[in-house]
Computed example of a mutant assay.
Amino acid sequence: MCLEYCLNWYDSSHTVKNGKIHNGKQNFKCRDCGRQFVQDPQNKIIDQTTKTLIDKLMLEKIPLAGIARVAGVSETWLQSYVNAKYQNVPRQVNVRAKKKGRLTIECDEMWSFVGKKDNKQWIWLALDVETREIVGVYVGERSRDGARGLWDALPAVYRQCAVSYTDFWSAYNQVFPSKRHHSVGKESGKTSYIERFNCTLRQRVSRLVRKTLSFSKKLENHIGAIWYFIHHYNAALLV
């Protein structure tokens, strides 16, 4: 009997209005079984123009709920779209070819977290001083393994030739070649470019803001969001 009422909601006293769905259509609820439904439900086709807009909004400091409102899509569909997008982001840097010779990089590590602040995920970054490209990325612990991950992420020409400037974190000394590594303080100005990029990253990626409701719940999405922005950042330098 309840199914009959649900199917004939328009002349049933067993249904009540229950807010609206993401596209503004009236939502109804059955008092007996709790089933929710809308009149004339339709599967919305998300066109490429909307997807292109979403791709751009993902590069700004906007939470997914905000993107869903702006683009007029459901949060469920958007989360699925973002998951697939981040999963397919390449996990290696795409930079201009460099000849062997004197190269200089600045390196730094930036705090972030996934799920809860006790689950710290440090973002290790290396920046080419001349081109301003991000040439190394690693997300993990703030330990020797993290420094090793950053070193392994560098293109071969940087591992062979680059002089590196870092802060005084001891992990760098354990991994980077001592003859080409210099530990310096902020007052030296030798790490100013990478520190400025850290600020840019926090300002553009909402899940990296220190006090945020947009924090990552999945490590894969956290890493994917960082790589997604870095690929965009490096590509913009070529324009």
Rank of each mutant, 00 (worst) to 15 (best):
L201H: 07
V209A: 09
F197W: 10
F197N: 09
K217C: 13
H231K: 02
I194T: 13
E220R: 13
S214G: 09
L237W: 00
A236D: 05
H231S: 01
G224I: 01
N221L: 04
T212A: 03
A235S: 00
N198K: 06
H231D: 00
I230M: 07
S216L: 14
N234S: 03
R202H: 02
H232C: 07
R204F: 09
Y228L: 02
A225C: 01
I223C: 15
E195G: 05
W227G: 05
N234A: 00
V209D: 04
R202C: 05
L237S: 00
L208W: 09
T212C: 02
L219C: 15
R204Q: 12
H222Q: 12
Y228H: 01
Y228R: 00
K218Y: 13
H222C: 09
I226Y: 03
I223S: 11
K211L: 07
K218V: 11
I230A: 02
R196F: 15
L237E: 02
I230W: 02
K211G: 05
W227M: 09
N221M: 03
A235K: 05
H231M: 01
R207T: 13
R202K: 12
A235I: 03
S214Q: 08
F229G: 05
L238C: 08
E220K: 15
K211H: 11
N198W: 06
A235F: 03
V205Y: 07
I230F: 01
T212E: 08
S206T: 05
N198S: 11
E195N: 09
L237F: 02
L219H: 13
F197E: 12
S214M: 05
A235G: 00
F215A: 13
K217R: 15
A235R: 02
L201P: 05
